[in-house]
Amino acid sequence: MKLFILLAIIATQTFANDAEKIMKSLYHANRPTTAIYKAKMIIEGAGRNSEREFVTIGKTNNIDDAENLVKFQKPSKFRNVSLLTKNYPNKNSSQWIYLPALKKVRRLDSSSKSGRFVGSDIYYTDMENRHYSKDNHKLVGKKGNLAVIESTPKEKDIYSKMINTIDLEKMVIVKAQFFIDGKPEKTTVSSDFKKDAGVWFAQKSVVTSHVIDQKTTTIITKHIFNKRVKNNYFNHFRLGDELKENF
């Protein structure tokens, strides 16, 4: 009996270690120095449908230090609405928002990370690079080159649990299930994977909410990796500037 328990503990630890390794690899994988995406976001639900187009410019300074700018282009009433996110090592990230109607830049507080990004099913917390060490990971399944890993935060966090299905070959998440207070919150399914400059990325992702009748589809229409980008883009004082480059 004792031997059985010992073997079970060893097995669990092994699986946990495997899961940790996978999540670590995932964290470090597919990170170009800069990534520029032109994308379309379609939000559907309860008889309504809205479409936005935006450009995101991301820059990785080092693994825990990254910046990301999102600038909306369509519809015209949201043109130039901008969101700047800066991730820091060992510190909470910062966000700034610019509203053209007010011609004002305001910082968003880090405690509002459970909010929805522009009314979509993508939450502000999803836009950060979450370090794998913040969670406990458990390998719950493996089939072919797909691994299913259940992650629970070590400290109280927005999501009480995440279940990720990872393509171990590409090192991308193909499906992610999110839980809040133990209840299913939403599911993201990524598809149409493409490789460029050694980086795998999903051209399409669909986030389906389980709490409201809504679904968000993001389709990447254009991408550029490792292009030199101006530092001005990541200066919150210049957040109101229009994009001069035509990506």
Partner: peptide
């Protein structure tokens, strides 16, 4: 409109 856009 823009408040609603960013209201989370």
């Amino acid at each position: 409109e823009q408040y609603l856009f960013i209201y989370d």
